[in-house]
Nucleic acid binder design. Structure first.
Lengths: 191, 191, 191, 191
DNA sequence: CATGAATGAGGTTTCATTCAT
DNA sequence: AATGAATGAAACCTCATTCAT
């Protein structure tokens, strides 16, 4: 569990600085200061500012994927899978609050170069939902739009939650979103 | 109606450049080139790069508001108001394709300074929805979350549409989103 | 003759700074200071430090070539051509004293990347000599080595001249070198 | 004769790296890697990068001097001394190929600081030649210029040889240079 | 109004050197 | 003696902004 090497300290610092200032306003100097080391030290662990930022994106991606895979393991009912996937995503965002902020809020639109990588998180999640919805009997077209709608609704609520400094009850909001889509798709009795 | 002065040309150019490169990658030089004038000329019409960007945000805000107000004028039924508001928003985003891209996609997360201003578009729209939902009988809590969910779903679909170069049928998607929320809130028979 | 635009000022300054400090010790700051302008101004005229340095190399190359071509024009006797080429080269080095210093003394070994470009000056000159020597009746092998020897002898003398701040009489030295090779190749009576 | 301590390993590594990359592009890290030790170890044997480079220059200087002194020992005829000195220098450059490359090719122009030291090799060699030429009957002025010419011719040929990866036959070239100067000075019958 | 050359602060990145282990 | 992580000064280069014409 020796998880507090310099690289972890720098990642944590980068999370805070990117989260607070956004990608472009963040400076290596600020990240190094936050991690209490020299700017040169940053480059012992990351080849560039971009490399560091992408490492954070990758980290969130990995966390979300791992959590969702675990939540879906051993579950057969597609409606149940859907429910658990949504809940898992919300849980990761809540736990990795700062990381989610970096990727979902500060990273968006930061740079055309980063967009593709950052959208992998949303797309990967969206893919699960499409599959489950089709398994639940929805036709493909509506499943695709529905998955986007769900991801968008969730991201928006997380964004509001982050922006409002957690005034909003994220769990309640996630439940309400679940209810909305559940009813819309007539899945109330599928569990 | 002399709408083709230098300022309008510069705004149009800024739209294209910000939309393509994002706020930070965009340069005044590129905007001026696109508008076929010198960089100095830019500063005759905008006090700074930030000022120009915010002018675009304000422009989208104004367009959306005007269009929605017009769409709601003279309509009494709250469900009908809701329906028309959504359709008006979609219509504006479609028409002001590039502007929407700047504000919704490239502007997001660009800079903490801009966030508040840019979120006014979403919040203002969200406020209409909350009001209509409450008028339709929903309790306030669910109306707030529901409005965020709707805005998020819509923004996501517009984002996908923009990113995929309009492969997705935006009108169909907007209709499907409408159907989802309509059913979820039991408003099918309210029109 | 309006040859004193900013670019010419910067080239002159670069000549002085590169000549004094060598490529790597020279800083853009120092060049800009010498040219009495801001560092940013440097980049209005050169895309990089390397670009500027190569512009100087190219300049010397062009000067030498032009001067030699002119000196050889309308001369038929190969021994006479040889004589005039050598004298032309010496003349250019004397006139473009600082430029020669940059390319012949400071540039040598500065960077493997630059070597090829910088050796074009020597090679181009060497090629003329080889041709003339063969025309004078020398066999090719000896002409090649002889041309290198001559170029080397000349460069060394110019180098010493530059290093000693012109204490040595360059014209006398060039004449003596001419005599050496003339005798060695038995060309005393060819003119 | 314990010639394989760490310092020798580092000098050998430095030779390879300086020879390949040039003084400024060479990094301590690269030299240490090549010598299979840590960067800190480098500083146990050299006080700085400059110190290490100068040690190499000094090494070549010593080698050349030793070899020439040995070659001249017990020889009385000044023309024979001259001949043997030249051959000794060529022999050292051929044997210490990499070292010669560092000093003659990569070191040249690297840094004004190094020039003086590096030119000692040429000057020391040149001094021998001047002495021998005067002993052979040449007047001093011509002997000085002649010695520079010879050193330059030789250095150029070695430079070409190094640059062309030894395509040129160095021994043949040295012989040809010897013949050129021998004839120019009328020494053909002096041996 | 319009221009565009000039500015210079500030950012990212490199690397010689140090020092605690 | 040996290590190699850490340092931080300094370099190159960009670009928003100004101002003389």
């Amino acid at each position: 569990m020796e998880e507090h090497g310099r690289k972890e300290e720098l990642l944590k610092a980068a999370q805070a600085i990117f989260g607070h200032y956004g990608y472009h306003q963040a400076t290596i100097r600020a990240i190094a200061d936050q991690a209490q080391c020299a700017t040169g030290t940053f480059y012992l662990y990351f080849s560039s500012k971009e490399d560091c930022f992408l490492a954070l994106v990758e980290q969130l991606y990995t966390h979300v994927m791992e959590y969702i895979m675990k939540a879906r393991a051993g579950v057969d009912n597609p409606a149940e899978k859907l429910k658990r996937s949504l809940e898992a995503a919300v849980e990761v965002f809540r736990r990795d609050y700062e990381l989610a902020q970096v990727v979902l809020v500060r990273g968006a639109g930061a740079d055309p170069l980063f967009e593709d990588r950052m959208w992998r998180v949303r797309e990967a999640f969206s893919a699960f939902i499409v599959k489950d919805l089709v398994d639940c009997g929805l036709d493909y077209e509506r499943a695709v739009i529905g998955s986007h709608a769900w991801v968008g609704a969730l991201a928006e609520v997380v964004g509001v939650w982050i922006r409002q400094d957690q005034d909003l009850d994220l769990t309640q909001a996630a439940l309400e979103i679940e209810r909305i889509f559940w009813r819309a798709w007539g899945l109330e009795d599928s569990l």
